[in-house]
Amino acid sequence: MDNATDGFPLAGAPGAPLLPTVHEPRSSTSRVIAEALRSAIVEGTLAPGAPLRQDAIARHFSVSAIPVREALRQLESEGWVKVELNKGASVARLTPAEAREIYEIRSALESLAISLAIPNHTPDSLREAAALCKAAESEPDPALYVARNEAFHTCLYAPANRPQLAEMIAALHRRGERYLRLKFGLPAYKGESDAEHLAILAAVERKDVAVAQSLISAHLLGTGELVYRFLTERAQAEAAAAAPRRKRGRPARTPTTIGS
C-alpha cells in the first residue's frame, strides 16, 4: 500500500486509477460510488484509516451528499468503512482479530458447503474446478489471483445448490479480500496455499467428504492464523519504531524541587 493516499480525493496517489464519475438515478448512483470506493480500498489506493470526506466525494462524482451518505452506510455495513460521531467516515483498519474471525467463519460455512456439494459434482463441474485451480496457481497478479481463488472456491460449492449459504460465503470473501492480498508479501505461503487447493480438489474428485471437509477447514483456519500473526507482528514492529520518535518529541520534564 505504498501508493495509498491519506484520504479522498485521490489526486495525490501516484499511478492511482481515477474513480469513475456517475450520471445515473440516485439508487444506482450510490451503488456505483460504493463499488468505486470499495475497489480503491481493496487495491490499497485508499489507505486504512484514511478519512473519507463526504463533500470531496460528492464533488468528484458531481452528485449531492445523499447518495454519498447511502454509499458510506453500505460500506460501513460491509465492514469497509468506519463512521464515528463528530469524526466522520474513514477506511476501516486491518486488524488481526477481524482477519482470524473472518477465516474462522469461512471455515465453518465452507466445510458445510463442500459436504453438500460433493455428491452433486459432475465430470463437467470437476473439470471446471480443476481449470480454475490451475489458473489461480499460475497467477502472479494479486487482483487476478484473488478473483481466481474465489472462483475456484465458488465452483467447489456451487453444486450444493444453497443460494443463501453461497451469498454468505461470497460476502466473507469480499470482506477478507484485503487480508488475502497480504499473502503476496509471503510467497512461500502462497505456494503452500496452492498445494492445499490441489489436495482439496483431489478429495472432491474422490468424493471423500470427510477428508475434503478436514482439508478446507485446515486451509482456511491456517490462512486466518497466518494473517493474524503477520498483522500482529507488523503492529508490534511499528509500535517499536514509533517509540523512539515519541520519546524524542516529548518536552523535557522540569525537575521537581523537594518541598515545593
Rank of each mutant, 00 (worst) to 15 (best):
T5S: 15
L10R: 09
G15M: 06
A16P: 00
S28V: 15
A34Y: 04
I41V: 15
E43F: 08
G44Y: 10
L46T: 01
L46R: 02
P48F: 00
P48D: 00
P67N: 08
P67D: 10
L72Y: 01
S77Y: 02
G79F: 07
G88V: 06
R93D: 05
R93S: 11
T95Q: 13
T95L: 14
Y103T: 00
I114C: 11
I118G: 05
T122N: 09
E128G: 05
A130I: 03
K134N: 08
A136W: 05
E137F: 04
E139T: 14
E139N: 03
F152V: 03
T154P: 01
C155E: 13
Y157E: 14
P159G: 02
R174V: 08
G176L: 07
G176R: 10
L182W: 09
K183E: 09
K183H: 13
Y189H: 09
A195W: 05
L198K: 15
S214Y: 04
S214A: 15
L215Q: 10
L226D: 10
Y228K: 07
A235P: 00
A235K: 14
A239G: 06
A240K: 14
A240Q: 09
A243C: 02
A243K: 13
P244T: 08
R248A: 14
G249F: 03
R250T: 14
P251T: 08
G259I: 05
G259W: 08
